[in-house]
């Protein structure tokens, strides 16, 4: 579903992503791990089409994200890090606008809006201005937006960052549910989250993939250590 080959991204002189390759088959929920600045967000932005890679290839459901960007983006529901929204719009207005951008027609858009409002527990605040919502609700609006056009692939950049424990639990539950129907790439640095929601992990460090495999395989390979120890060892900070 998601194929990345030798992806390289330079920011000026600095090489943020150095030849990342991986493949995500249909129906998998992949936890995308790595320390801050490892290149997680950059890789995801390249996949979502916000950034153009310096070299390498990436495709979503068979559509190349560089040569066929519109069709590739139709396959993706993307939630950017920190989830930027328009504060002056109401939740329903925002979702209607996003639905239009994604090419949803009137009745279909209303149907999908009802579905995502229900699914993301936004029913109570749907008439509220986005600017007045708390962080947790905004995150849900972002998630609702990603789900709106019912895309086969979801790319979520730190969906639980900045949430309180109850909200994290709710979001996790939602992610687990969504994982039944969508292929998902989920970046985070909360390791327990990956263990709960994902079936596959990709660990990225200094712009390179250092580990990729199903959760069980990775554990087995590293002599049944827990994920945190594996993560710390692979990202070279063992002494701490």
């Amino acid at each position: 579903m998601i194929v990345v080959e030798n992806l390289v991204k330079y920011y000026g002189e600095y090489q943020a992503v150095r030849g990342v390759s991986f493949e995500v088959p249909k129906g998998r929920v992949v936890g995308f791990l790595g320390p801050n600045g490892a290149g997680k967000s950059t890789t995801m932005r390249c996949l979502a089409g916000f950034l153009t890679a310096s070299s390498g290839k990436a495709s979503i459901a068979g559509f190349d994200v560089f040569s066929d960007p519109i069709r590739a983006r139709r396959q993706i529901g993307y939630m950017p890090e920190s989830c930027p929204l328009y504060p002056e719009m109401r939740v329903t207005e925002y979702l209607k606008f996003r639905g239009g951008l994604k090419g949803l027609g009137g009745s279909e858009c209303r149907r999908r809006m009802d579905y995502v409002l229900e699914k993301c527990w936004l029913k109570d605040v749907k008439r509220q201005l986005v600017g007045t919502l708390s962080k947790g609700y905004r995150q849900r609006v972002g998630l609702a937006d990603a789900l709106l056009a019912d895309p086969p692939v979801l790319i979520l950049d730190e969906p639980t960052a900045g949430l309180d424990p109850t909200q994290i639990r709710e979001t996790r539950k939602l992610i687990r549910e969504l994982g039944q129907e969508h292929t998902m790439l989920l970046s985070t640095h909360i390791l327990s989250e990956v263990e709960m929601a994902a079936d596959t992990v990709i660990i990225i460090y200094q712009g390179q993939v250092v580990e990729h495999g199903s959760l069980d395989d990775v554990r087995k390979k590293h002599k049944n250590q827990n994920l945190e120890d594996i993560f710390v060892r692979l990202t070279g900070q063992e002494g701490i």
């Binding site: 916000f50 069709r71 930027p84 929204l85 090419g103």
Partner: peptide
Amino acid sequence: GTGTLESLLTSPIR
């Protein structure tokens, strides 16, 4: 400034 450009440019619009 607010970063909403990211969600705009990643939606299927040229």
